[in-house]
Computed example of a mutant assay.
Amino acid sequence: MTSILSNNYFVHFSNSGYLKFEEFLEDFKPSKCFILVDENTRNYCYDNFVTKLSKQYPFEIIEIPSGESFKNLETCNFLWKKLTDLGADRKSLLVNLGGGVITDMGGFTASTFKRGIPFINIPTTLLSMVDASVGGKTGVDLGVLKNQIGLFSNPEMVLIDSNYLETLSPRELLSGLAEIIKYGLTYDIQLWNEIKTFKSLTVSNITPLIYISIAIKNEVVSEDPKENGLRKILNFGHTLGHAIESYFLESKDKVTLTHGEAIAVGMVMELYLSHIKFNFPLNLVEEVKNKIQDLFGKVEISSTDFNAIIDLLIHDKKNINGNVNFVLLNSFENCELNCTVENSFLIDAFNYYII
């Protein structure tokens, strides 16, 4: 696959990506090279990574616990201290080998350590490949509030190897599909048409869509790096989705959702809001709802949960002057930005999802 040029860095693919990685090491000559992993990527991905290289390198492994609950400043503080203890300087390199938590937090840690050291992202989940590989967003959560602390900072390069997807559970693989569906509904309906044919999700049927998804996100981000206009379409499904994800994360009697599961719910609900506000065809809302629930199952949301989830919307990063802003659709590939929605319509959307 041809490398994709993003904002001042390349996304490289498969075996050529490892060659580019080694070329970077030879050219940059880092004083030290640290590999950030969690216990899963340490056990299932690290050995695959080093065996793809032509020779051994003196990597220092830094391991943190896996999971969204560790994506916080406390973990960053551990990482900053660890880098300090291991003698990292401004010529050091941090390689983030993992999913979205690792690449988001690793990028943030590197970008703030000694006012910034270079980092490389090697995403190992479908979600991080199609979502976090381009765009330059780094950050951590503030309590249960998603990505409240962060900054825009680009890696030196990104290496995409779909072989890492073989290490994922079916649930984690499915989580990344939600972002691909988002690209299809908002930007390239052919992606959605392809996904509609899936009887099940496998690495083989999803791999061809990875390159297309990254190329789409790169087109959007290259035109609007700081999310002033077009890039906002990438938030479709995320306003409600993030609130649902946060609510399930903090609720003691709820099973924590994956990011993709929450975004899938958010997309169904925001499509229904699109029907209410902009006459998006109800039969197409039904089509998307049925396929998403066929693939993801149905999340159990009670009417007693509605108001608590709505209360979390006030913390969404897209809000301006206290207004909660949604991305809604007039039709497939035709988005309306900065839409405000009455609470009564939000309740209607919840009720639509749960029936």
Score class of each variant (00 low, 15 high):
Asn163Pro: 00
Tyr164Thr: 05
Tyr164Arg: 10
Tyr164Trp: 11
Tyr164Val: 11
Leu165Val: 07
Thr167Met: 10
Leu168Gln: 03
Ser169Arg: 12
Pro170Asn: 07
Arg171Met: 09
Glu172Leu: 04
Glu172Ala: 00
Leu173Asp: 00
Leu173Gln: 00
Leu174Thr: 01
Ser175Ile: 05
Gly176Glu: 04
Gly176Cys: 07
Gly176Asp: 05
Leu177Glu: 04
Leu177Gly: 00
Ala178Leu: 03
Glu179Pro: 04
Glu179Arg: 08
Ile180Val: 11
Ile180Phe: 09
Ile181Asp: 14
Lys182Met: 02
Tyr183Trp: 07
Gly184Met: 12
Leu185Val: 13
Leu185Asp: 06
Leu185Cys: 03
Leu185Glu: 01
Asp188Gln: 08
Ile189Tyr: 15
Ile189Gly: 02
Ile189Phe: 15
Ile189Trp: 13
Leu191Phe: 05
Leu191Gln: 07
Trp192Ala: 02
Trp192Val: 00
Asn193Ala: 01
Asn193Gln: 14
Glu194Pro: 01
Glu194Ala: 12
Glu194Thr: 07
Glu194Arg: 15
Ile195Pro: 07
Ile195Glu: 13
Phe198Asn: 09
Lys199Ala: 08
Ser200Phe: 04
Leu201Ala: 03
Thr202Ile: 10
Thr202Leu: 08
Thr202Gln: 10
Thr202Met: 11
Val203Ala: 06
Val203Gln: 12
Val203Asp: 04
Ser204Thr: 14
Ser204Ala: 10
Ile206Ser: 01
Thr207Leu: 07
Thr207Cys: 08
Thr207Asp: 07
Pro208Asn: 08
Pro208Val: 06
Pro208Trp: 11
Pro208Arg: 13
Pro208Thr: 01
Pro208Met: 10
Pro208Tyr: 11
Leu209Gly: 02
Leu209Val: 01
Ile210Leu: 03
Ile210Lys: 06
Ile210Ala: 02
Tyr211Asn: 08
Tyr211Leu: 12
Ile212Ala: 15
Ile212Asn: 15
Ile212Tyr: 13
Ile212Ser: 14
Ile212Cys: 08
Ile212Phe: 13
Ser213Asn: 03
Ile214Tyr: 09
Ala215Thr: 13
Ala215Trp: 11
Ile216Trp: 04
Ile216Arg: 10
Ile216Val: 14
Lys217Cys: 09
Asn218Leu: 12
Asn218Asp: 15
Glu219Arg: 15
Glu219Gly: 05
Glu219Tyr: 08
Val220Tyr: 00
Val220Arg: 06
Val221Pro: 02
Val221Arg: 06
Asp224Gly: 09
Asp224Met: 12
Pro225Asp: 09
Pro225Ile: 13
Lys226His: 11
Glu227Pro: 01
Glu227Ala: 05
Gly229Leu: 13
Leu230Ser: 09
Leu230Thr: 09
Leu230Glu: 05
Leu230Val: 11
Arg231Glu: 10
Arg231Gly: 00
Lys232Gln: 09
Ile233Tyr: 00
Leu234Glu: 02
Asn235His: 05
Phe236His: 08
Phe236Ile: 14
Gly237Phe: 07
Gly237His: 07
His238Met: 03
His238Lys: 03
Leu240His: 01
Leu240Ser: 01
Gly241Ile: 08
Gly241Thr: 10
Gly241Leu: 02
His242Cys: 02
Ala243Val: 14
Glu245Lys: 06
Glu245Met: 04
Glu245Ile: 13
Glu245Gly: 01
Glu245Trp: 05
